[in-house]
Amino acid sequence: MDKHLLERSLTAVDLPDDGLTVRFYEILFERYPAVQPMFRRDTKLQAEMLRTAIVSVIDNLDDGEWLTSNLGSLGRRHSEMGVTPPMYDAVGECMIAAMAEIGGDDWTPEMSAAWTEALTAVSSLMLAGYPDGVPR
């Protein structure tokens, strides 16, 4: 994984006031309205937590033990909320869409590819944390 490209591209689209993750949730709910009831919290708070998680993952990208432990734990919590594998795909799609929208002409196919790889890896580690295996 190209950590430098991930950091550089995140810096380019990381808007003030969690604007990237706020826009992500707007896109997610537009494209996948069925998931919105799963979000009982204020979306602004959810956006803050998501931004913190993204930055933490990038900061610890070279620490496999940290990633496995923390993302596995996060996956267990998501399993309790009923998150299914297709929802992870939707999240990746909508996050990259938000990044590309904010990045505009400066967003490149290489950035999309790097984030697709990273978000797929994150999803895999989270799904590995599901207590009874991945739901179908």
Rank of each mutant, 00 (worst) to 15 (best):
S123I: 02
G103R: 06
R31M: 11
L28C: 06
T68R: 15
H78G: 11
D14K: 11
D2T: 01
A97Q: 09
T52N: 13
W66R: 03
L28R: 06
G72R: 00
V13I: 02
R40T: 14
D106G: 09
V13D: 05
A114W: 02
L71Q: 01
I102E: 08
A53P: 06
D18E: 05
K3S: 07
A47R: 00
G133V: 12
S73R: 14
R51F: 06
A121C: 09
M81G: 09
A34T: 09
A113W: 08
V35A: 09
E110N: 05
A47M: 02
G75W: 00
M87Q: 15
L125R: 05
A114M: 03
P33R: 10
Q46W: 03
P109N: 13
D42P: 06
T68N: 15
R23S: 08
W66K: 07
G72V: 02
R23I: 02
L119H: 14
L5H: 03
T116V: 03
G133I: 11
S112R: 12
S9P: 00
D132I: 08
Y32F: 12
E117H: 12
Y130K: 09
A47Y: 00
T11H: 14
L74K: 08
T68P: 08
L61A: 11
M99R: 10
P86I: 03
L127I: 05
S56L: 12
T21D: 05
M87Y: 06
H4T: 15
L125C: 06
S69I: 07
M38W: 02
T52L: 14
Q46E: 09
Y25H: 00
H4Q: 15
L20R: 05
V83L: 12
P131Y: 09
P37N: 05
S69H: 13
G75V: 02
S56H: 10
D42V: 13
L45G: 03
D2G: 05
S73Q: 14
L127E: 13
